[in-house]
Design a protein around this nucleic acid. Structure first.
Lengths: 138, 138
DNA sequence: TATTGTTATACTCTATAACTATA
DNA sequence: TATAGTTATAGAGTATAACAATA
């Protein structure tokens, strides 16, 4: 083995790029990038969170998150609603069209996830996930 | 746990960004980005490889690799040498200055690696690396 | 014809500073 | 004074097409 393959950051980066190659291809037919999909995913699970809450949960800066939300709103997949209790913040919801697209994309995403689990082999996912979250300083 | 944390690609991406935060800070004093460091790393181990060999080993496209090599050559850390047997190709070598900087950077990088191993806990690295390389389709 | 390296270019992602409206 | 969201902008990183020199 080349010594560089023993470097954690290098191995991580190569794995991430490889997984995203498959993921990007998987989501292409829905015109969704991985970040867009993750936003729909969180909104679907937690409708009504505001932009700051979602962007910080996803590790996206609020300033960059604006464009992501703009794009998804323009595509009529989500809607911004002024919160009554704090009129500065925008609660985010899936539109019907957004929910429909998300459910289809999620089905394809499940197939992607199966492919990755096959790459990992028996118990690979169960070993990998906690290690990755230990690396992630939040 | 939020369901999204169970998605392999998402966990990978978050871990990679977190590790790179530390790595970028570690290499900052040497004015090296992670990609620059990886190039010096490979040249130090395999002096005389040509640009195509190094870029493909690192998963960087040859067209983008030109700018990386330009920058490192302008900083006098590496030099391009026309190969005698194939005058199209450029063999890459560390300069004395490049070797000196690389050894210092590698010392700091070892500390970075120790910090990541601490995050992972006992046997974490030994479990993680083979899983990551199984995910990487090369 | 094919390959190595190159240029030009465009697109995405990410980072910073400064602003507005509300609190 | 602080916070949620926004705009403008600049810098990385990455992707494609077309080319010259050499094989």
């Amino acid at each position: 083995m080349q010594a560089i393959r023993g470097i954690i950051g290098y191995a991580l980066r190569r794995a991430q790029l490889s997984v995203f190659d498959d993921l990007i291809q998987t989501l292409e037919e829905f015109h969704l990038r991985p970040a867009n999909f993750s936003v729909l995913y969180v909104i679907n699970e937690n409708p009504g969170l505001n932009q700051s809450e979602i962007s910080s949960a996803l590790g996206i800066q609020k300033t960059n998150f604006v464009q992501v939300v703009d794009r998804l709103e323009k595509a009529e997949l989500i809607k911004r609603c002024r919160a009554k209790h704090d009129r500065r913040s925008h609660a985010l919801y899936l539109t019907d069209k957004g929910a429909e697209l998300f459910y289809k994309a999620r089905e394809q995403h499940k197939q992607h996830e199966k492919r990755m689990i096959e790459r990992l082999g028996p118990n690979g996912r169960e070993q990998l996930l906690p290690l990755l979250w230990r690396l992630t300083s939040e």
